[in-house]
Amino acid sequence: MSTDQAQDTITREIEIDAPLAIVWELVSQPGWWINDGSIVDNAIQEKDGVWHVTNDTHGTFPLLIEGSNEPSHVAFRWAPWDERAVEAGNTLVEFFLEGLEDGPVTVSVVESGFASIDLAAGKVAENYRDNESGWETELGALKTHLEAP
């Protein structure tokens, strides 16, 4: 696990003892990571190419699907600090899956683009710090959820 010194990119990874197809099914869902440390069923609705993910606790987050290559890569754009910024001034969240069909699977997340966000430097740094620890929590939740009997 590493973090770029320039505070533009966060990279995390975890190994999950589950079949690749099962991991892909969850990781490819827009906003699966929007929760409080355990995977929940968020309401997801698509309108005009923007996915709106609603979490009962945290509200609604717009996301764009930037690209997908099943079952190894999916990318989303989001701006959790300002829903109007989802199409500009956002970060790119990419998930990479590597492993055997029957597992285990290494899931890597790379969130980049913090340096180009049009916000006050303090606000960018706050979002970076929040997501830096947040990805640890979310990947842990992913592992716990997918490895549960």
Rank of each mutant, 00 (worst) to 15 (best):
Q29S: 07
E70A: 15
W24A: 09
E138P: 06
E15C: 15
W135I: 01
D8G: 05
A79W: 00
H52F: 15
K47T: 15
G89A: 01
G49K: 05
G59D: 00
T3Y: 04
D41C: 06
A21C: 08
H58D: 08
M1I: 04
A75N: 05
L146V: 05
I22E: 12
E126V: 06
E138V: 07
L92P: 03
E66T: 08
W24P: 15
E66H: 14
N35M: 02
A75V: 02
V124E: 03
T3F: 10
A6V: 03
Q29V: 14
D4F: 06
P80R: 01
N127M: 11
P80T: 00
T137K: 10
W81V: 06
G89I: 06
S108K: 14
S38A: 09
S28F: 05
I117N: 05
D102R: 12
S116F: 00
E94L: 04
N35P: 09
A85D: 09
R77H: 09
W32D: 09
T60W: 03
G67Q: 03
E70C: 15
T3V: 11
E46S: 08
T60Y: 01
G89P: 02
Y128S: 02
F114T: 01
A79V: 03
L20R: 06
W78C: 14
A148Q: 12
T9R: 06
D48S: 10
E111S: 00
I39Y: 00
H145S: 10
V107W: 04
D102H: 08
W78Y: 13
T137W: 05
E94F: 03
E138N: 15
P149M: 15
T144Y: 12
W24L: 07
G113E: 00
L64Q: 09
N55T: 03
I22M: 13
L119V: 13
E13N: 09
D130Q: 14
N55Q: 03
E98H: 13
V105T: 04
I117K: 09
W78M: 12
G103D: 11
T3E: 10
V74M: 10
T3Q: 11
S112V: 00
H145L: 03
E98M: 08
E101I: 12
A148K: 13
I34D: 08
